[in-house]
Simulated assay, not measured.
Amino acid sequence: MKREIFSESVEAVEAWATKRLIPLSKPCCPRIGAMKDKLILPEDLDAPLPDDTLNAFEGTQG
Rank of each mutant, 00 (worst) to 15 (best):
M1P: 00
M1A: 09
K2M: 02
K2C: 02
R3C: 01
R3G: 00
R3Y: 01
R3W: 01
E4A: 07
I5N: 06
S7Q: 11
S7G: 02
S7R: 07
S7P: 00
E8Y: 02
E8M: 08
V10S: 02
V10L: 09
E11H: 06
E11P: 00
E11R: 08
E11A: 10
A12I: 01
A12T: 06
V13Q: 10
E14D: 15
A15I: 03
A15K: 12
A15D: 09
A15S: 14
W16N: 09
W16R: 11
A17R: 08
A17P: 00
K19Q: 12
K19C: 04
K19D: 10
K19P: 00
R20L: 15
R20V: 04
L21P: 00
L21K: 15
I22S: 12
I22R: 14
I22V: 15
P23I: 05
P23W: 03
L24D: 10
L24I: 13
L24N: 13
L24A: 14
L24Q: 13
S25Y: 03
S25M: 11
P27G: 03
P27V: 02
P27W: 01
C28N: 14
C28I: 04
C29A: 13
C29E: 11
P30A: 10
P30Q: 09
P30L: 09
R31E: 06
R31W: 03
I32P: 00
I32R: 10
G33L: 15
G33W: 11
G33F: 10
G33P: 01
A34S: 12
A34P: 01
A34H: 11
M35Y: 07
M35G: 03
M35K: 10
M35S: 11
K36G: 03
K36P: 00
D37R: 10
D37L: 08
D37E: 14
K38D: 11
L39F: 12
I40M: 10
I40G: 02
I40F: 08
L41F: 14
L41G: 02
L41R: 12
L41D: 07
L41P: 01
P42F: 03
P42S: 15
P42Q: 15
P42T: 12
E43P: 01
E43I: 07
L45K: 05
L45C: 08
L45E: 08
D46K: 01
D46H: 08
A47C: 07
A47K: 04
P48Q: 04
L49M: 15
L49H: 06
P50V: 02
P50Q: 07
D51P: 01
D52I: 05
D52L: 05
D52R: 06
T53M: 09
T53Y: 06
N55F: 12
N55D: 13
N55V: 05
F57Y: 15
F57L: 14
F57K: 05
G59L: 04
G59K: 05
G59A: 07
Q61G: 06
Q61L: 12
Q61D: 13
G62Q: 07
